[in-house]
């Protein structure tokens, strides 16, 4: 729960979002990428660049001995983030997961070019950036974490933020549940997805 509080403090106390959080500020990243997708917001893109570019470079250096190629990975990845931002769907995963996918795909295509001399750019077919789940009709929406809250939390007056720190509408947030069960947020998300998919299958069967 401490994380949630830290996030909130960042939003109210300083209008310059801090990049110094120990924990990833998923909410903030989500707002930036959404702003890039919907408003072509260069300021938000600059923030994303500041956050991701150094990390991408570090990872790319591990895969390419050549500094120029590592830089190419950064440039290509961030260019694709700008061009393909609209393919990001916050209901299907975190910004970090999506940008990781963009980066891995760029790296894969570049390595393939080096090894096989093929410029067929197959990565987006292997790991689509707008991945549709098998359970397409069961799109999982986290109504606590999604846009509604992205928008709402920022405008809540201080004394009402209490609501968010505790249970929101009588529910735990995914973060709280993750913290409580001591598992990564991603695990909670996938357990919820899986549980819902299973439930719908059961319901479907019982109505057949």
């Amino acid at each position: 729960m401490a994380d949630v509080q830290t996030e909130l403090r960042n939003k109210t106390v300083s209008d310059k979002p801090s990049l110094m959080n120990k924990e990833l500020d998923h909410l903030q990243l989500c707002q930036w990428l959404t702003a890039v997708a919907t408003d072509r917001d260069k300021q938000a893109f600059t923030r994303l660049f500041q956050f991701f570019a150094p990390k991408i470079l570090r990872i790319a250096k591990g895969k390419f001995p050549n500094e120029a190629q590592a830089n190419e990975v950064v440039q290509e990845t961030m260019t694709n983030v700008w061009r393909k931002a609209h393919l990001f769907d916050q209901n299907k995963g975190a910004v970090t997961t999506w940008i990781y996918t963009v980066m891995r795909n760029v790296t894969f295509d570049m390595l393939r070019k080096v090894k096989s001399n093929k410029e067929d750019n197959l990565s987006d077919d292997i790991w689509p950036l707008a991945e549709s789940l098998v359970t397409e009709d069961e799109v999982f929406v986290d109504h606590i974490e999604n846009k509604k809250i992205c928008d709402v939390i920022a405008v809540l007056p201080e004394n009402q933020q209490q609501v968010i720190k505790g249970f929101y509408f009588n529910e735990m947030s995914q973060e709280q549940l993750a913290a409580h069960l001591n598992v990564p947020l991603g695990t909670i998300k996938s357990r919820l997805r899986l549980a819902l998919a299973k439930l719908k299958k059961q319901l479907g069967e019982s109505y057949d």
């Binding site: 929406v141 986290d142 109504h143 606590i144 974490e145 249970f167 009588n170 529910e171 735990m172 947030s173 995914q174 549940l177 919820l192 819902l196």
Partner: peptide
């Protein structure tokens, strides 16, 4: 069921 973060 009440406290799990799942939509209505």
């Amino acid at each position: 069921i009440e406290i799990l973060p799942v939509s209505y």
